[in-house]
Design a protein around this nucleic acid. Structure first.
Lengths: 249, 249
DNA sequence: CCTTCATTTTCCAGTTGATGGAAAGTAGGG
DNA sequence: CCCTACTTTCCATCAACTGGAAAATGAAGG
């Protein structure tokens, strides 16, 4: 997963890589970005201009800081539609209705899992969950992407591995073993590692080459997701995942 | 609106401009893209590689054609969330409930209007409308963007101006006059120009600089959107647009 | 099976245009 | 008001982007 560097155009790659600085939804200034990307500020400034001109970044006139631009929102909608991701919605709704848990679809993006627009997690607080990012190491969905994409220790070590609950696995060896377990089980599992009293099952959705393109999540309070029900829920979720794979890929 | 050319990096601008070829959701090969962008195929091929490496385009291994990539979907979700666009949803739902028409939010993207993810147009056929593109010249939402962004005849002439119904205005002078009327009225109006028996009201949502960032649409069958009700609907929609402007910008 | 044509991909020398240090311009804080 | 930190502009240097041409791929037809 290291730089092969043989292909592409350096300037363009630099500019696009720059966008990853904004994955967390932050606002950043030129020098901060230059530091992170290890580029000269003048170079960074020029590349940022190009990104702003194209609408990929917005620049705040007064603070001189940058944030993700509207062109990305527009392309996101178009891309979303083009991939017909919305076709998975009825399957997710049915799964949620059958299990009483919340069903969602997600994709990997850099060091995060991103929940897609129509995720129907029925939290009591009614939080909007589209675009929410989850860490790869401490979410059932993230484990799916890591487990089925030849992840070595170096990759694991490069991840941010913060813990939001005491149950989170944060050491490299522990995560490596968890990924082995995940592969053996055939699904990702998150046992209150991210949110207390909540468990999630994650299933891979692969394309014809076997590459995991999406992950399906089934999430609920631990009192619903008791051990005895997990196998049944996994079976249901796997059927849904296969249906979605057939529709999308 | 022509090239100022003083800023940015040529290579990056070329690569990002290339993405506009895919606004229509098509799949394209190298030579087709090179032709449209008036670049050498070798150059185009290299730039496309960079875009693929970054996940902004996907390349079909067998057909060698390109389409929008998953990174755009992910960034779209993140950007969407970052701009808190979802906050407008309850206002739209209330407007729709009050009027019985369908309320939606849209943004401009190039020569199109793009409907944002949560558009709640309650068509009987239940079509998913997020990411749908509408032409600027023949939609109430599009007229809003054109009317309040100093559009000259040259700009109008450069638009695709196809007609899907006989009522569509397709000549430059006619569109120019329609934009004057739009400014005078204070709202965009589409009278069965795009879809038979459907009318839409469009209202601008401006940021603190007066720039139209979004447009609010209120759409329904002509039997609902009769002339006598239009002023009332416009007033309601304007209130909603102001509320959304206050929340988003 | 071989030829032809269209398209994609690789290669390479020429030179455009990207780079980054330094200087100028801005803004905020004490 | 000065100091500091940051953004923006400038410009000489040379890295790396460009595009023509050649090589590879693949689809269509004889």
């Amino acid at each position: 997963m290291t730089d092969s560097r043989a292909t592409g155009v350096q300037t363009v790659t630099r500019a696009l890589t720059m966008l990853t600085c904004f994955d967390g939804g932050e606002e950043l200034g030129v020098s901060e970005i230059a530091k992170r990307q290890d580029l000269a500020v003048s170079t960074t400034h020029r590349l940022l201009q190009s990104l702003v001109d194209a609408g990929f970044l917005d620049k705040d006139k007064t603070s001189n800081r940058y944030r993700l631009g509207s062109a990305l929102a527009a392309y996101g909608q178009i891309s979303y539609r083009q991939h017909r991701i919305y076709l998975s919605e009825p399957y997710l709704e049915q799964l949620a209705a059958t299990t009483g848990a919340s069903a969602s679809l997600a994709m990997r993006h850099g060091h995060d899992v991103v929940l897609l627009g129509f995720s129907r997690w029925r939290e009591s607080d009614g939080h909007v969950l589209q675009g929410v990012r989850l860490p790869l190491h401490a979410s059932a969905l993230g484990k799916v992407f890591l487990a089925w994409s030849d992840t070595d220790d170096e990759d694991i070590a490069s991840l941010p591995r913060a813990a939001t609950t005491p149950r989170a696995i944060t050491d490299v060896a522990g995560i490596r073993e968890e990924l082995v377990r995940t592969r053996e089980r055939g699904y990702g599992f998150n046992d209150e590692e991210l949110t207390p009293d909540f468990r999630t099952i994650g299933l891979p959705i692969r394309d014809s080459d076997g590459v995991v393109r999406f992950a399906l999540g089934l999430r609920g309070p631990t009192e619903l997701m008791i051990d005895a029900r997990i196998p049944f829920f996994v079976d249901l979720a796997r059927v849904t995942a296969d249906e979605i794979a057939a529709v999308l890929l």
